[in-house]
Amino acid sequence: MSREKILAAVKKNQFAHAPLPDLEILNTLTAATDNLVQQYSTVASAGGSFVYEVKDLETIKAILQKEFKHGVKIISSIPELDEYTYAGNVLEESSHSFADAELTILASNLGVTENGALWLTESQMNIRVLPFISQHLAVVICKDALVPTMAQAYAQIGNADYGYGAFISGPSKTADIEQSLVIGAHGPRSLSVFILT
Rank of each mutant, 00 (worst) to 15 (best):
M1I: 06
M1D: 08
M1A: 09
E4G: 05
K5M: 02
I6R: 02
A8S: 14
A8R: 11
A8W: 05
V10R: 03
Q14M: 15
Q14W: 14
Q14F: 15
F15T: 14
F15M: 08
H17G: 13
A18D: 10
A18Q: 15
P19K: 13
D22Y: 15
E24K: 04
L29V: 12
L29C: 11
A32W: 00
T33H: 06
N35D: 10
Q38S: 14
Q39K: 10
Y40R: 01
A44Y: 00
A44T: 03
S45A: 12
A46Q: 13
A46N: 11
G47C: 12
G47H: 14
E53T: 08
K55F: 08
L57R: 02
T59S: 10
A62E: 15
I63H: 01
L64Y: 01
Q65G: 07
E67P: 06
E67I: 12
F68E: 08
F68G: 07
F68K: 09
H70Y: 15
H70C: 09
G71Y: 06
V72N: 13
I75P: 03
I75T: 05
I75E: 06
S76G: 05
S76V: 03
E80K: 11
E80P: 10
D82C: 02
E83W: 02
E83P: 00
Y84E: 02
Y86H: 10
A87R: 09
G88W: 13
N89Q: 11
E93D: 11
S94K: 14
S95D: 15
S95V: 13
S95L: 09
S97L: 00
S97W: 05
F98A: 00
F98H: 07
A99K: 14
E102K: 12
L103Q: 02
L103T: 08
L103V: 04
T104I: 06
I105L: 01
L106M: 06
S108W: 00
N109C: 11
L110S: 00
G111S: 01
T113I: 07
N115L: 05
T121Q: 01
T121I: 00
E122L: 12
M125Q: 10
M125H: 05
M125C: 12
N126W: 00
R128L: 07
V129N: 03
L130H: 02
P131Y: 09
S134M: 02
Q135I: 11
H136M: 00
H136T: 04
L137T: 01
V139S: 04
V139G: 07
V140F: 05
C142P: 04
K143V: 10
K143Y: 09
A145L: 03
V147Q: 04
P148A: 05
T149W: 01
M150I: 12
Q152F: 06
A155R: 13
N159W: 11
D161A: 15
Y162G: 10
Y162H: 12
G163K: 13
Y164K: 07
I168D: 03
S169N: 06
A175T: 08
A175F: 08
S180K: 14
S180F: 15
I183P: 00
G187M: 03
R189D: 04
S190V: 03
S190I: 01
L191M: 12
V193C: 12
